[in-house]
Computed example of a mutant assay.
Amino acid sequence: MDTPLDSAAEVSLDEAIRLTAPGTALRHSLDMIIAANLGALICVGDSDRVLAAGNDGFPLNISFTANRLFELSKMDGAIVIDRDLTQIMRANFHLNPDSSLPTTETGMRHRTAARMSLLTDAMVISVSERRQVVNIYVNGQSYQIRTVAELMTRVSQLLATLQTTRQTLDRSLLRLTSLELDNYVTLGDIASIYSQFELLSATDQNLQDIIAQLGVEGRTVEMQRMQLVGDMDHEYSLMIRDYASRSTVEEAQNIRAQFQALAAKNELDIKNIASVLGYEDRKEDSVMVPLGLRTLSRISVVREGMADKIVDEYGSLQELLDDIQQNPERLDEIGIRNSVILADSLLKMHGRR
């Protein structure tokens, strides 16, 4: 795509991808059109403005089916379908969009499609008879539909990257837990892990985009994705809260958005990470003190909300570890169930038992 879409256009494009994904009636029609070496121009939605931008053609108002759309594509002109894909309203319809509307397309069919998507809110589909490709137009921008084979090649690459990154991240988090329990975590340690989280997140988003394009063919891939990603989002948020100067859930979401923006520009370095976390005077070897939310969440008896309660009482993971041996009853006093198991688990993790 040439330029970024605004949020409304992004929603429209997502809807267009869903409607043309494998397994849908519209995609079945498009596959038949390609297989028959035909071309087509199809407008879906915003019917009033689409009809106002053309003339002639055959009024049909018949129920939409994949076979009917395929047969009608054998005629010249555009096919107009309502937004819900329930009725084919016109066939052999001659579109005349404003020729002054900007477009970088060269072929007549694609230029018309691009201009119609600028002039109306319709999803406009152009099937090239010569090149045998399908382009969707939203807000003047084009998106080319890929074949299942092409998409699966990309899926294999992304799954391999996701698996490798997840394995690296798991090892790093295991090491981080040991460092946290020993009270010797540096800014450099957490900066590298935030970068790994962002790589995993970006790869996962790319894979989700491909899965959306695969439609029914993407169900198995989605299960593989879920197995690899697991609870990444929750663990990432907890780690941000552990080290941010302000540890609220809302601030963690804001920090994560800033990390994502920095990663996209390849600027997620130690200085910027420290700044976003709320520290302007930290260096790579500066010692960072975790709250302990992430580590506590790994203990089976710590249920949802309990980690926050413990952190509010003790202030940091190290304070909790120091106090457990001297004052183990304190956990009971603040209403923590299974406090003996919790304390024993933490001490075992730290090697004190």
Rank of each mutant, 00 (worst) to 15 (best):
P102W: 09
S316K: 04
D98W: 01
A122R: 09
D2H: 02
G57F: 03
E150K: 03
L214V: 05
I79P: 05
D209N: 13
R166K: 12
N338M: 07
Q196F: 00
I42Q: 03
M349Q: 12
N183Q: 07
S247D: 07
I79D: 00
K348F: 08
R111E: 04
G23M: 02
N135F: 08
N183V: 02
E15L: 10
L13C: 05
D281Q: 10
L159T: 11
M123G: 00
Q325A: 10
A343Y: 02
S339W: 00
T112V: 13
D332T: 00
A8Y: 06
S247R: 09
L321R: 07
Q167V: 14
M306H: 13
I210K: 07
A191S: 15
V221S: 11
L331I: 03
G107T: 10
A257R: 13
H110Q: 06
T203C: 13
Q87A: 12
L41E: 06
V301G: 12
I210A: 08
M1P: 10
T112I: 12
L262G: 06
G230N: 01
A78E: 00
A114T: 03
E15F: 05
H94Q: 02
T161I: 08
E217R: 02
V44E: 11
L95Q: 01
S117C: 03
D209G: 02
K271W: 01
I255T: 10
G305S: 05
E250F: 04
T104A: 14
Q253F: 01
I42N: 00
R131L: 15
S99Y: 04
E180P: 07
I210L: 14
F70P: 14
E280Y: 07
A252T: 08
A307T: 08
I273F: 02
R146Y: 00
A52M: 11
N92I: 02
A21I: 04
S297P: 01
S126W: 01
A36Q: 10
D344S: 13
Y143N: 13
A191M: 10
I88N: 01
N183P: 07
T177F: 09
V185M: 14
R294G: 09
S7Q: 15
E71P: 12
T164K: 14
Q87N: 15
T112L: 07
T220F: 06
R256N: 08
Y143M: 07
A149G: 06
D98H: 05
N67G: 07
D281M: 02
A35D: 09
I136M: 12
E222A: 15
M116S: 05
L85A: 05
N254S: 15
I324K: 01
R219K: 15
A263K: 13
N135T: 15
V50C: 01
P59R: 15
L38S: 04
S126D: 08
V216G: 11
N272E: 06
P4H: 06
I211P: 02
S339M: 01
L238E: 10
L320S: 07
A9K: 09
S286R: 01
Q167A: 14
G351S: 02
V287Y: 09
N272P: 00
Q224V: 04
L207N: 06
G45L: 05
G230R: 04
D31E: 05
R256I: 05
D189V: 11
M288P: 03
R303S: 13
S192W: 06
A191E: 13
D323G: 09
N61D: 15
